[in-house]
């Protein structure tokens, strides 16, 4: 099932814009001069060897990591900073938190709140961050958990759920914030092979719904079928970026080819 995005992504408004983004950890240069525009409704996957900076790139989008140079905007809003002339002042924590509330993140290890049931996990941030009344948040949480196929597991604590179920709760929890974008960091890497499919199905469903998604993944078939574009990263750079068929079948660079031959 392939859903279509307008042929030229430029027809859609840009949702996430990386403009000459660089980041270091001490002496280590983790992101180097990243330029990338993700259109609204676009699904882009990031692939590349371990340590190439994929997770860091995602974490910069919601300012979990600071960048040293360049800028990131989401839906036209500069992330983490306020521009005053030529200076970018870091925003106070409350305002950064407000930006993060609309930029959802799904983690490799699910990170569900262990002391809360599936339903409470999904309700937590709408109630305590957005200030939505409990009853409304609960109705929404029930709807979302049903959407990811967990209507019978709402009162389970994370410990009593399989990895695939936990990750689907995590996706419902992300959706409850009505995010502008969802960032997935290897959402299926911690799952037993037979549980990968159920999570990818939910993500496929979101994609066809027009959600803007950045997905770090090793699932090449998912990247090929669902993503509009694939970006290959190595050593902090986006080496090449294009339609799945182009990048996967006829990569322009030898390094991309070498990586693909190792994972496929």
């Amino acid at each position: 099932m392939m859903h279509s995005l307008p042929e030229t992504t430029a027809m859609r408004a840009p949702m996430i814009v990386f403009d000459r983004v660089s980041k270091n950890f001490g002496d280590l240069s983790v992101l180097r001069d990243i330029n990338l525009t993700v259109a609204a409704g676009e699904v882009i996957s990031l692939i590349g060897p371990s340590g190439s900076g994929k997770s860091t790139l995602l974490r910069c989008v919601n300012h979990l990591e600071r960048i040293e140079r360049g800028s990131i905007t989401v839906d036209g809003e500069l992330i983490g900073y306020r521009r005053v002339g030529n200076l970018a002042h870091e925003l106070p924590e409350k305002l950064i938190a407000r930006q993060r509330a609309r930029i959802a993140m799904v983690f490799q290890n699910f990170n569900l709140f262990g002391h809360k049931t599936a339903l409470e996990n999904v309700m937590e941030a709408p109630v305590h961050v957005l200030g939505i009344p409990r009853r409304e948040a609960e109705a929404q949480a029930v709807k979302l958990l049903t959407r990811v196929g967990l209507s019978d597991k709402m009162n389970n604590y994370p410990r009593m759920l399989s990895g695939g179920q936990q990750q689907r709760v995590a996706i419902a929890r992300a959706l409850a914030m009505k995010p502008k974008v969802i960032l997935f960091d290897e959402p299926t890497s911690a799952l037993d092979p037979e549980l990968v499919g159920e999570v990818l199905d939910v993500m496929r469903d979101l994609a066809s719904d027009g959600m803007t998604m950045m997905v770090v993944t090793h699932e090449m078939s998912f990247a090929r079928e669902v993503c509009h574009r694939i970006a290959f990263m190595e050593a902090g750079r986006i080496v090449e970026c294009g339609k799945p068929a182009e990048v996967l079948d006829s990569p322009a660079f030898e390094r991309t080819r070498a990586f693909l031959s190792r994972v496929q």
Partner: peptide, 21 residues
């Protein structure tokens, strides 16, 4: 697990709220 604080932060909680809740 530090992942708990990260998840809370990425949902828009301030450090204080993440600590308490």
């Amino acid at each position: 697990d530090p992942g708990q604080r990260q998840a809370a932060t990425s949902l828009g909680m301030t450090a204080r709220k993440a600590l308490w809740r």
